[in-house]
Simulated scan of single mutants.
Amino acid sequence: MKVTFALAGAAAITLPALAAPVFLPRAEGPPPLREADRYLSNVERAVFNGPVEDVIAHLNSDEGSVLAFVQQTDRIAGIGDEIPIEGTFPDVGALRILELTDGSRVTERVVENTEARFAYQIWGFTAPAARPIDHIHGYFSYEARDEETTEVVWTYAVAPRVFWARPFIQGFLDNDFGPFMHSGLSGSAEAFNATVAN
């Protein structure tokens, strides 16, 4: 028997059913963020040939967002709809519900938005099999290499609720979600760099 659960509202992992775990009810609101070493993560990097402010504007646009370049797979669901709850994305504190193409939902909020970093948190997975995940803490860091080159680093960190799920989540990040992230970030960089070159 296997258990499948959604990851960050944009992924599904199939895990062996080791036992029927008991989960305590979740508190209302976002779970507290953890120290960096308490997450399982994947990191992707890309170089954009432009200053930080132009790169951020590109990533915040519909045509430059990493979501414009990722592809839904049988293990990674797409975003079907965005329902604003509070504030306006990408402002700090903005809150929204994402309805996914597999019928599940997650809640997302903006944690930080500066010229150096954009951070978000995802929690409240409605897929019953997503219970081993407490939350996701994702962030984009922007570092100017010089006046005309910016390195963007996308970190996607998953906080498991149960210890036994850790190797399966890390395997999924390495083998499935990592390539998904790479295609999104590298696709955005290639599109940006092509417009700069012309």
Rank of each mutant, 00 (worst) to 15 (best):
Y139C: 09
D102T: 07
D54C: 03
D81K: 15
A36C: 00
Q121I: 10
E53M: 08
V52K: 04
P128H: 09
P84M: 02
R34C: 13
E99Q: 13
R145Y: 07
V47C: 06
M1S: 14
A10V: 09
G50L: 02
Q170K: 13
I85L: 15
G64S: 00
P160E: 09
S104W: 06
T14I: 03
A189F: 05
A130T: 14
S186P: 01
S65R: 00
E86K: 13
G9M: 01
R117W: 02
F69D: 00
A36V: 09
A157R: 11
G187Y: 08
I97W: 00
E115G: 15
A17C: 01
S41N: 12
R96A: 07
I13F: 08
M1Y: 10
E63C: 00
I79P: 02
F172C: 03
G87A: 06
A8D: 15
R45T: 14
R145V: 15
V22Y: 10
E151D: 12
I136Y: 07
G138V: 07
S104F: 10
V3H: 05
Y120G: 07
V152T: 12
A20L: 14
T155L: 02
E99K: 14
L15C: 14
T195L: 13
I76T: 15
T4D: 03
A144R: 11
A159M: 08
E63M: 00
S104C: 11
Y142T: 11
V153S: 13
A127I: 08
S186I: 11
A157F: 03
L98R: 04
W164I: 15
L33C: 02
V66N: 04
Y139G: 07
G93W: 02
E28P: 00
S65N: 14
A8F: 12
G103C: 04
R145M: 14
P25S: 02
N60A: 06
I13Q: 05
E112Y: 07
E112V: 14
I136R: 05
E86V: 07
A11S: 15
I13H: 06
E82Y: 11
G138E: 11
F23K: 09
T14P: 01
A116H: 13
V153Q: 13
H135P: 09
V3A: 07
A46V: 05
A10Q: 14
G184S: 09
R105K: 15
D37T: 03
F177M: 10
P51A: 13
I169K: 02
D146I: 11
F140P: 00
T150A: 10
D91E: 15
S141C: 09
A159V: 04
A191Q: 12
R75D: 13
N193L: 05
D134M: 13
T14R: 06
T101A: 06
R117P: 01
N113A: 12
E108S: 08
L24D: 14
M1W: 06
H58D: 02
S188C: 04
R109E: 12
A27P: 09
E108H: 12
V47W: 06
P16K: 02
F172G: 03
A77I: 03
A11N: 11
W154F: 14
G138Y: 10
A197G: 05
F5N: 08
T88G: 00
L33K: 00
F125Y: 15
R26D: 13
F140R: 05
I79N: 07
E190I: 06
V70S: 10
R96F: 03
S104R: 07
N60Y: 11
T195C: 01
D74R: 12
A46S: 12
F5W: 12
I97G: 01
L7H: 02
A6Y: 01
S61L: 03
